[in-house]
Amino acid sequence: MESASELVYVVDDDERVREALAALLRASGRDVQTFNSGEEFLDTQHQNVIACLILDMRMPGMSGLEVQKLVSRDSQIPVIFITGRADVPSTVLAMKGGAIDFLTKPLDEDALMRVVDAAIARAHVLRKEAEDTALLQALHQSLTPREQELLPLLASGRLNKQAADTPCRYIAATS
């Protein structure tokens, strides 16, 4: 399922962790971009690709949870948290915020690769859903005002004849 249009973002303030993760992911055929802070990640223009984000929980400046909150507002990038000091409240907040998983350092390489694969698969699903939604919205916008008015009536099970007998709000509103 891998392709050139997939990318793993790694955000960690520890250079050794960033480099080790990038080397592991690249050895597994993944394209990787690394960042040393949440601010640097958020300030960078991101490519329009299938992606996931490996995010350190505790960093100077902006925490991983703060980055997750901002990322989830603007996109649907699946997030994998990593930390050296796990605590239950942070784990719960990360998972409630939509994180794919929460891994503790030192990382188990096999577990990390399984989670990355799951996150990329999730990103593919999210991209497909977004494309389908955009297509449906475009089709809906291509309908005339009267067709847009009748569509919910027909979708709710009314017969064509019953829907056609419904007064036209569009004409009444413009008269």
Rank of each mutant, 00 (worst) to 15 (best):
L103I: 08
D108H: 10
E109K: 12
A94T: 01
G98I: 08
L107D: 05
V125H: 04
R122D: 12
D108P: 14
M113T: 02
S90P: 03
T104V: 15
L107E: 04
A111I: 14
A123Q: 01
M95E: 11
F102T: 00
G98C: 13
T91E: 13
V116K: 00
I120E: 13
L112G: 02
D117L: 06
D108F: 05
E109N: 14
A111R: 14
A111E: 15
L103K: 05
R122M: 14
L126M: 05
T104S: 10
M95P: 07
D117M: 06
P106K: 01
A123N: 00
S90L: 08
R114Q: 11
R122C: 11
K96F: 03
M113G: 00
L107M: 04
L103M: 12
E109M: 08
L126G: 04
H124V: 15
L103P: 05
A121R: 07
K105M: 12
D108Q: 12
L93P: 00
V125I: 10
M95I: 12
F102N: 04
T91F: 01
G98K: 11
V92D: 10
G98M: 13
L103Q: 08
D117R: 05
L93Q: 15
K96T: 08
K105L: 12
K96D: 15
R122L: 15
G97A: 15
I100Y: 07
A119P: 09
V115M: 11
V116M: 08
D101G: 09
D110I: 13
I100K: 07
E109D: 15
M113C: 02
A94I: 05
P106W: 05
L107K: 04
R114T: 11
A111F: 09
A119W: 10
S90Q: 08
V125L: 09
A99M: 08
D101M: 09
K96H: 14
L126R: 07
R114G: 02
A119K: 00
V115G: 01
V125P: 02
A118L: 10
I100W: 06
D117P: 00
P106D: 03
D101C: 09
A119E: 09
A118H: 08
V116S: 04
A123I: 03
